[in-house]
Write a protein that binds this DNA or RNA. Structure first.
Lengths: 207, 207
DNA sequence: GAAGAAATTATTCAAGCGTATAATAACGGC
DNA sequence: GCCGTTATTATACGCTTGAATAATTTCTTC
């Protein structure tokens, strides 16, 4: 019985493939479906190889979580334009594809359920979360200042907590049961709510 | 070696104890920590007994999820008083103990991550979720009507989606990192946001 | 093209899993 | 106070899990 043939891949590529395979497994059948054997299978390698690149299964899960968080936050950190457009864009991005879809939620929820158990995951989580809220707070401060409104730290903090909560909640609902909402209904609701909260219009064309 | 002694418990009590033990295990170490043996251990019985009361491990998890959802929603469904007070109370309840704490989140997140995998859990979830949103929508309609405001179905729907999202998100943040927020800070923020959204004050003393 | 390094496979292990079945002890009815 | 019912324990089975180790193939370098 001949050994199966294989090719040696660059370390970065192999690690990337293994993490992608891990995410696929989790998205498809949850954390308990992400066994070393399943992951290896999907990546087209044998189980032993995983432990050649990662100390343990825990470690590959941690690195996979970093990737998930990065994808959930990177898009939003790259908004461009004037303060109006940036704030508006931030809201839209977080409530539409590819940030908002059922796969994202599956991944997020799977990891969240381990955050309270695994301190390492908790650290990764907090870092991503605080970064997200800080970005939103900066956006708000900038926006309010440009409009000549009160941009005091206390107010920005309150507003960013509220808007962050709103976005989280709507994102969750949209991912969980997107078919219950009309096309871009959640985006409209989010924009209207933020406008009511700020007492200002978010013009789409304020260039 | 003598057999260990035991006492025969009424069916309802034993089922209740087994489900509580299941929730304890999940809250403490996640779904993968809730093994038949661990659950039995914590309930002070032997593993075999679990299958005397539940067809399978899947079934005990489903019933445990029903309990979790019931606890997250039952408190809010029992608000009393005039429309003002009821809406206000609904908000407060959902952002304070015992609905909002890290244990609730652990349980919720553990199950949510299985909702996309197990159709039976998905059904249980949807039922609880829709009930919650309907309750909120009814509360809103009542409140707006009492104030003589526009209480059209379309408006109530939009508002309830927004407020539901806000509450979900703030609940999540509070549970995940309660120490980042001041005492009742999230409640204040939620109330202020809802007031801005409705364009009305939620007086605490409008009896 | 031979040699050496190391990436990859193959195989094995002990532990833990959910489940099944048989033995037994507790309790209610008589 | 015995007796039948059945809740509960005890034991065992087959399977999967994460991990460890040894064998082998690939690729680079000279």
């Amino acid at each position: 019985m001949p050994r199966r043939t294989f090719h040696r891949a660059p370390e970065a590529e192999r690690r990337h493939d293994l993490i992608e395979a891990t995410l696929d497994c989790i998205a498809e059948s949850g954390l308990e479906g992400a066994t070393v054997r399943q992951i290896a299978d999907r990546a087209g390698v044998t189980p032993g190889l995983i432990r050649h690149y990662f100390h343990s299964k825990e470690q590959i899960l941690q690195e996979a979580y970093r990737v998930v968080i990065a994808r959930l936050t990177e898009k939003a950190s790259r908004v461009a334009g004037n303060p109006d457009e940036r704030l508006r864009e931030f809201i839209v991005i977080n409530l539409t594809e590819p940030v908002a879809n059922s796969r994202s939620l599956s991944l997020w929820a799977s990891f969240i359920s381990r955050v309270s158990v695994d301190p390492e995951l908790a650290a990764i989580h907090r870092e991503g979360y605080l970064g997200f809220r800080d970005a939103l707070e900066a956006l708000l401060a900038e926006f309010l200042a440009a409009r000549g409104e009160d941009a005091s730290p206390a107010r920005c903090r309150s507003l960013s907590i509220a808007i962050n909560g709103l976005l989280d909640g709507l994102w969750l609902e949209g991912c969980l049961a997107g078919e219950l909402f009309g096309e871009s209904e959640l985006v409209s609701i989010a924009l209207a709510t933020v406008e009511a909260l700020l007492g200002l219009r978010l013009t789409a064309d304020s260039a």
